[in-house]
């Protein structure tokens, strides 16, 4: 196995395109190194993107926040502006692994590993995040939902890699939240998870709502009906009940070592309501 550490996007693409055999992109390595050690993957080339400036930056412009694919969870967690804009996304990334893992793990890697239980993903979907992809044909930008195809499978074509993740600058009175269920307090993988972003008007009525759930289907799912249930209304028990049912209805989980179909389906509804309530409360606390 050959290790490469290109210093430009161009060089990385060239390595990916010309690699003989299997090539694997490495950012923090908290998934890739474990998979190597457990002999789950045996790539011929390991291409470390951490030396490429664009993958290491957090930039904020008028339209969006860009988080480089190799920005670590610890760096993101200490970025006051991103935290203020999208607290749920930052919290989701902060839940990955331990303190030690946080100093290596990246949101880009969490996305590209394409686990159905990835913590950052439901939060990114709720925030309407986009993936910035570099490849032989230039840069393209696609939605998180379109990027994830199946467990372990993404929309990346040969020669492509993820440079950054883009989050919109949220409208006024918008906030998000992410919650996951694990039987322990940390160091575990989501059994069920939910991310939500809520926008309120001056009267506290919902004008925009997005809700996504994780670990309940091959990829994280946007609960499309959530918008219809929440928009134009206030948060009441009736709507929450509808929301829980709508969430459970989109779940197609499996029984595995981490949870059961019935448990995941039911608790997805519970977490969806809790995530919406938390995002709503945060939006209420924002200046009008």
């Amino acid at each position: 196995m050959d290790y490469h550490a290109p210093e430009s996007i161009h060089a990385a693409i060239s390595l990916l395109v010309n690699a003989e055999g299997d090539a694997r992109v490495l950012a923090g390595g908290t998934d890739v190194l474990v998979q190597l050690r457990e002999e789950m993957i045996e790539p011929n080339h390991l291409i470390d993107i951490k030396n490429i400036a664009e993958t290491r930056n957090i930039s904020i412009c008028a339209k969006e926040v860009r988080v480089g694919a190799a920005v670590t969870g610890a760096e993101l967690g200490e970025h006051p502006k991103v935290k203020a804009l999208w607290p749920g996304v930052v919290e989701a990334v902060g839940l990955i692994g331990s303190h030690q893992i946080q100093s290596r793990a990246t949101m880009g890697g969490n996305l590209c590993n394409a686990s159905p239980a990835a913590d950052s993903v439901p939060a990114l979907i709720a925030a309407d995040g986009k993936v910035v992809i570099a490849g032989p044909n230039g840069e393209r930008k696609i939605s998180i939902e379109d990027f994830l195809i199946a467990p372990g499978k993404t929309a990346l074509a040969i020669g492509e890699f993820v440079v950054a993740l883009a989050l919109p600058i949220p409208p006024t009175r918008t906030a998000d939240a992410y919650l996951r269920f694990i039987p322990r307090t940390e160091m575990d993988i989501a059994v069920v998870s939910a991310g939500s972003a809520i926008t309120l008007d001056e009267d506290g009525k919902c004008t925009h709502a997005r809700l996504a759930v994780g670990a309940v289907a091959p990829t994280a799912r946007l609960v499309k009906s959530a918008s219809g249930i929440l928009v134009d209304g206030l948060l009441d028990d009736d709507r929450l009940e509808q929301l829980a049912q709508a969430t459970s209805a989109v779940c197609e989980p499996i029984d595995d070592k981490r949870g059961t179909v019935a448990f995941r389906t039911q608790v997805a509804g519970v977490l969806a309501c809790r995530a919406v309530k938390l995002a709503w409360q945060r939006a209420m606390e924002r200046d009008i």
């Binding site: 269920f181 949870g259 059961t260 179909v261 019935a262 448990f263 039911q266 608790v267």
Partner: peptide
């Protein structure tokens, strides 16, 4: 006493076939 077992014991809506 895992969460699925407890939830089932509490007798909420979770179906019996779950585990």
């Amino acid at each position: 006493l895992t969460p699925p077992k407890i939830l089932r014991a509490i007798g909420e809506t979770i179906p019996e076939a779950a585990e």
